[in-house]
Simulated assay, not measured.
Amino acid sequence: MENRSASDRVVTKTAAGSVAEVAARFRGILEGKGVMVFAVIDQAAAAQTVGLSLRDTVLIVFGNPAAGTPVMAAAPLAGLDLPLKVLIWDDDGVTRISYYSPASIAERHHLEPATAAGLSAIDVLTDAAIKS
């Protein structure tokens, strides 16, 4: 399942497995392709540190400097969207993976198609992660 919302700004896909399993699978895919993982933030664990509860939610921040640097050189404020991020979260027992669409990032920063082309890798990477 793939849903797009808010004028295709956010893509949400249904993934096989738990949040932890999908996050581990996604990290493995990234590492296998030589993509840098800058941060993995367990937002549910962070909520617990202040006595609050939150559904299983993990944010993974990743990127490829060879693809991101030309984008930020062309549009410095694209650094607000880069590196790329995916949110892997529990939706009442169904694991979802969500991210800003490459088209929305390109539109927001007025990127030329050739400059924005590398952003579309997120679609392929998440497609691989949603499979069991």
Rank of each mutant, 00 (worst) to 15 (best):
V10F: 15
D42S: 06
I122L: 04
P102F: 07
I130M: 12
D127I: 08
L111I: 05
W89N: 04
L82G: 08
G118H: 11
K33W: 04
G68M: 06
V86M: 02
A16W: 01
V10K: 04
T49G: 11
I105C: 10
A106T: 11
V11D: 10
A78C: 09
S53V: 13
D127N: 15
V40E: 14
L80M: 12
A44F: 04
E21Q: 14
T69A: 11
A116Q: 09
H110N: 14
Y100L: 05
S53M: 05
S101W: 05
I97E: 04
S120G: 12
A39V: 02
I122V: 15
L52M: 12
M36I: 12
A44S: 15
A116S: 15
A6Y: 09
D91C: 08
S132A: 15
P70T: 00
A15M: 07
R4F: 00
Y100Q: 14
S5V: 09
G34N: 08
R96D: 09
W89F: 08
N64R: 11
G28W: 08
I41E: 14
V94E: 13
V10A: 08
T126Y: 07
S120R: 13
I122R: 03
N3V: 12
H109N: 14
A129Y: 01
L80A: 11
G93E: 13
I41D: 12
V58I: 15
A121N: 04
S53F: 04
A23N: 02
I88T: 10
I60F: 06
A78Y: 04
G17K: 10
G118S: 10
K33T: 06
Q48G: 13
S7T: 05
P113F: 13
P70R: 00
A16F: 02
Y99S: 07
Q48K: 15
K13H: 08
L80T: 03
T14A: 07
S120I: 01
R27F: 02
F62E: 06
M36V: 12
G118M: 10
I130H: 03
V86Q: 01
Q48L: 14
R27I: 11
I88K: 11
L119G: 00
A15D: 06
A47T: 01
I97K: 01
D8H: 14
Y99Q: 02
S101E: 01
W89S: 06
A46C: 00
N3S: 14
I88M: 10
V22Y: 08
S98L: 08
H109D: 10
E2D: 06
N64K: 10
L59Y: 04
L52W: 03
A75L: 03
F26Q: 01
A67V: 15
I60L: 14
F62C: 05
T95N: 08
A24R: 07
R108P: 06
S120H: 14
F62G: 00
E112K: 11
D123A: 05
A45Q: 14
R27N: 15
V86S: 01
A20H: 01
T95M: 09
A74C: 03
P76E: 02
G68D: 07
G28R: 09
M72E: 03
A39R: 05
G118L: 12
K13G: 00
D42M: 06
G93H: 09
I130D: 05
R108M: 12
S101P: 09
